[in-house]
């Protein structure tokens, strides 16, 4: 378990809902449309305080993990709001305690901006995803628009101390981990993206 990352997100658990309240509303439609595509048993990575449960269609079996026990404490309070089955567990995405090919779908929300070894984490997700299964990601990445990308590079050393990196190339990381990219759609500029990828059979 990455204790540094765990401590960082534990420290944010108390203020997370306040800080993300507007994002939660502004991206609600985009998240709903993305997660409407989940099929079968689904692994939700980095559940945080459980704000995204409401964006999942009802009636599914969702296994949620997060590296932060304090985030999970808050997420447990929201499990009852979901009309389906949710299990929660503290886990590091780079060392998942699940057998190979355990899930039909993997979902992530603003996760791989924070995982210190993103390709290792994505490779681990590929291991637990069934062949042909899909990963649905709502992630922010480095902009390819020159001035915005430079600004994200400049801000990242500051944001990294208490939160995420702003300049990750997550689409490329998904590809590097061996997934086949199916679809990439922008949710805000070319920074917040919905990425769909498949675990090749």
């Amino acid at each position: 378990m990455d204790l540094v990352t765990q401590a960082k997100w534990d420290s944010l658990a108390g203020s997370f809902d306040f800080l993300s309240q507007a994002d939660d509303r502004r991206f609600a439609a985009a998240k709903r449309s993305l997660f409407a595509k989940i099929k079968g048993k689904t692994l939700l990575v980095a559940v945080g305080t459980g704000n995204d449960f409401k964006f999942f269609p009802p009636g599914h079996h969702i296994v949620g993990i997060d590296i932060s026990p304090k985030m999970l404490e808050r997420a447990r309070l929201k499990v009852g709001e979901y009309q389906g089955q949710i299990e929660l567990d503290a886990m590091d995405v780079t060392a998942l305690d699940f057998p190979d090919a355990s899930f039909d779908t993997v979902a992530t929300v603003c996760t791989f901006c924070s995982v210190p070894k993103p390709v290792a984490g994505l490779s681990e997700l590929r291991r637990v995803l069934k062949p042909g299964g899909r990963i649905l990601m709502f992630e922010h990445v480095r902009s390819r628009i020159g001035p915005l990308g430079i600004l994200q590079d400049l801000m990242t050393p500051l944001t990294r101390r208490n939160g995420p990196d702003l300049n990750r190339d997550t689409v490329a990381n998904v590809h590097r981990a061996g997934f086949k990219i199916v679809r990439v759609k922008n949710a805000y500029l070319d920074i917040v993206k919905m990425i769909e990828a498949e675990n090749p059979a």
């Binding site: 306040f18 800080l19 993300s20 507007a22 994002d23 991206f27 920074i191």
Partner: peptide, 11 residues
Amino acid sequence: APFLGMFQTMM
């Protein structure tokens, strides 16, 4: 940012 969204404010 908490009132308008992190990216819609910061960018």
